[in-house]
Amino acid sequence: MRLSDEILDFIASPVMIIIGTRNQANRPSIARAVGGRAVNKETVEVIVSAWQWPDAIANMAANGQAAITFARPADYVSYQLKGSTQLRAGDPADLELSRRYRADIYALFGGLGLPFELVSPWLADRELTVARLHVREAYIQTPGPKAGNAADSPTERGGG
């Protein structure tokens, strides 16, 4: 599906990124990403430390299924995208994107009163791997009455 410009811009801004995957037995697993970008209106990429989140990487390598939530800490505005992923090793442009992302996130949490030491365990930069998500579904996930609504249709529910 095609994402709105609003969501594409949101993904590339300093927002927290979390990923849900699952193994062959349908057991879910959680990971965080350290940077994201829109490739085009239907495809986004997020950067994940395979060192910190080996289960999620193994799951995506095995079945590609992923749900990715982007959430802005200051006001909890959140979107969840679902679809299938392909993995590739991070290149220098990805490493640079991730470096800038981490600097932005440290600054953002610093402004909210959370010190560097508290935030650093969430932002590993080892073995950075890129997961490219072909978006099949998009949902609003901001807490409130619209949580779970499809991002492009106010009636369909299924992503909360």
């Binding site: 849900g20 995957t21 879910p28 959680i30 959140s78 969840q80 909360g160």
Partner: peptide
């Protein structure tokens, strides 16, 4: 203080992930 995260899966294997209040 710091939100927790929960991941679940639908019967068809589609994952879902969200923050928890």
């Amino acid at each position: 203080v710091i939100p927790s995260i929960i991941a679940t899966t639908a019967a068809d294997g589609t994952p879902n992930i969200s923050y928890l209040s």
